[in-house]
Amino acid sequence: MSRELLLRIWRGDASGGDLVDFVVPVEEGEVVLDAVHKTQALHAGDLAVRWNFKAGKCGSCSAEINGHPRLMCMTRLSSLPSGPVTITPLRTFPVIRDLVTDVSFNYEKARQVPAFSPRPEQPVAPFIMYQQDVERSQEFRKCIECWLCQDVCHVIRDHEENKPHYSGPRFFIRWAELDMHPNDGLDRKEALQDTQGLGYCNVTKCCTEVCPEGIKITDNAIIPMKERVVDAKYDPLVRFARRRLRRARGTASSATSQGPGHG
């Protein structure tokens, strides 16, 4: 059933802008991106919007709909409360024009992730990765890089000054994915804490709430990485056990070095 919908779309660029009202006809089953396309077709041919294929997998059409960071292609109009629908660009990133933002911050952070580094003691035979180890990181591989988690994260959304030393949730799951890989040889915990700002996250879970792929970013990546940092720096029992292990290994190696018949 067709009806008229009032859209309030932010229009402008880095020099300024404002919400502009458009009325468009919409049909049952349509999504917000359909209404934006109708706005382009009927009222504003120069309205800038980034999108690709309307299937919720390219992560291009991220915007803020009635203040919620969401994918425009996956937000049905029927799921929104009645009344005008407000659409604004992602608030955390610089605006280029209208609904299009400059998300290059994220690609800079992506370049800072140390690549997968196989353990030096890699056996000659090919490394076999078992299903339970695959599944753990598979969740993180679902990320479509829509940047909604980065947008909603208050650490950089409300504090631009934190951007140089904070990677954000999307990259915490990338660091976690690599750190949890059974054959990765790098110790990423302290770098993540010291240079990527893991400690800035206060686990308020907004990243998890907005993720269109349903990735449990906080529970399965950020908190486990915080716990790994605790292992390395703050856990009294782990430190004690490590010291004992190191001493035991030292004793064993010195016994071995005395030759056969001593160990």
């Binding site: 402008g12 880095a14 409360p81 604004t88 280029i96 400059d102």
Partner: peptide, 16 residues
Amino acid sequence: APRARAAIAARTLRTD
């Protein structure tokens, strides 16, 4: 020059 964010004064546009 570094680009500015969209000029939106409201603390939030959430309506819920």
